[in-house]
Design a protein around this nucleic acid. Structure first.
Length: 344
DNA sequence: ATTCGCGCACGCTCGTCGTT
DNA sequence: AACGACGAGCGTGCGCGAAT
């Protein structure tokens, strides 16, 4: 194994000088720098991560806490992971994916064993038992999502309440007066998961404000369940002309389930989804959506965590405003009616 | 024979000091 | 002032000698 001492001997400098060239933490003359870099290249030196962690008391690892619970849509979660890994690499940090569902004790164990320098926490519940632990840990953390009480925490999230409201406002502006809400799997609501709870709350409040009749149903992650939920929504509100979908797994089936229930999209029912843009664009027909900015959230979370690790002051709560992208699933109501009339 | 405590090594960073 | 070198110390496991 080539060590920093080998490089130093080869370059004719002290090991510490090699270290400074590598870290850039002290100015080193251009001549010395280039000599050291040439020696590193010639010897094929790779810094020893473990020893570096030992001496710096830093693992250069971010723990990404993502319990694989029921109702989580993994493809979207993996995009969070990818975004976090990419952002972490820009700071020469790696990401340790912690998927075990052992909540607070698991978090404490990971912190005490110095496996990670800080934590990103996903799938945050309104009353999350990990939060008290995060508050007292000696290591910094950032939550993607936010619990009821955010004191002493750093959180980044889409403003899901505003997102739910934006869906209602868009549909109400188009003239819809009866709107259904197809929600996340029931387990997600049972856990009182923050994003699901808030989107629903924002939807309900906006509907009340605009005088809109609503019904909400959760939907599990299989076709049959989505169909049952869609049919239940129609039974409860036969006059329903619009549907808000906050369930990534159900997106692919919503239009066909509505069709199977005798409603065409968008002729009979307009649809707005809260999901990543790409998902809304991939389904047929493409859906108007309030964008879930997965990559942006992951990137912000890492930047906030790195900021905390470097001792910088960071905002306690960063809420990204919702952005709606209009697609064919929410046409002007008059033209939708015209389309429905002309086709049938 | 087993247990215990101590010292050391590992590779690297960083505070401090010396040299130019 | 700029640059380079020195050496303590980080956490853990191992080997050694002493004590039981």
């Amino acid at each position: 194994m080539v060590t920093i001492a080998d490089v130093a001997r080869h370059a004719g400098v002290a090991p510490s000088t090699v270290s400074y060239v590598l870290t850039g933490k002290r100015s080193i003359s251009a001549d010395t720098k280039s000599r050291v870099r040439e020696s590193i290249r010639a010897l094929g030196y790779q810094p020893h991560t473990g020893e570096r962690a030992l001496s710096a008391s830093r693992a250069n690892v971010i723990g990404l806490v993502l319990p694989l619970r029921a109702g989580l849509h993994l493809p979207v979660m993996m995009r969070f992971v990818t975004a976090a890994v990419t952002a972490a690499r820009r700071h020469e940090m790696d990401v340790l994916l912690m998927t075990a569902e052992d909540g607070a004790p698991g978090l404490r164990r990971a912190a005490d064993s110095a496996q990670a320098d800080g934590f990103l926490v996903l799938d945050v519940e309104m009353e999350d038992d990990r939060v008290p632990v995060l508050r007292e840990l000696a290591k910094p953390s950032v939550l993607i999502g936010h619990p009821t009480a955010t004191k002493g925490l750093t959180c980044v999230d889409l403003d899901f309440e505003a997102a739910g409201a934006k869906c209602v406002d868009h549909l109400a502006d188009l003239g819809h007066r009866s709107i259904g809400f197809l929600g996340a799997p029931s387990a997600v609501y049972r856990r009182n998961t923050g994003f699901a709870h808030r989107a629903m709350a924002g939807f309900s409040a906006a509907a009340m404000r605009r005088g809109i009749a609503t019904t909400a149903m959760p939907a599990e992650e299989d076709y049959e369940s989505v169909l049952r939920s869609v049919q239940a929504l129609i039974r409860a509100h036969p006059a329903m002309t619009a549907l808000v979908v906050h369930n990534d797994a159900a997106l692919a089936w919503v239009s066909s389930c509505l069709r199977a229930s005798g409603r065409k999209v968008p002729g009979d029912v307009a649809v707005v989804a809260i999901c990543p843009d790409e998902l809304a664009e991939q389904v047929s027909p493409p859906l108007t959506s309030v964008r879930l900015p997965v990559e942006e959230l992951g990137r912000h979370a890492v930047e906030l965590l790195v900021g905390k690790l470097e001792g910088r002051a960071v905002p306690p709560l960063l809420l990204l405003p919702p952005r709606l992208s209009r697609r064919v699933s929410t046409p002007e109501l008059a033209s939708a009616r015209f389309g429905a009339a002309s086709s049938g």
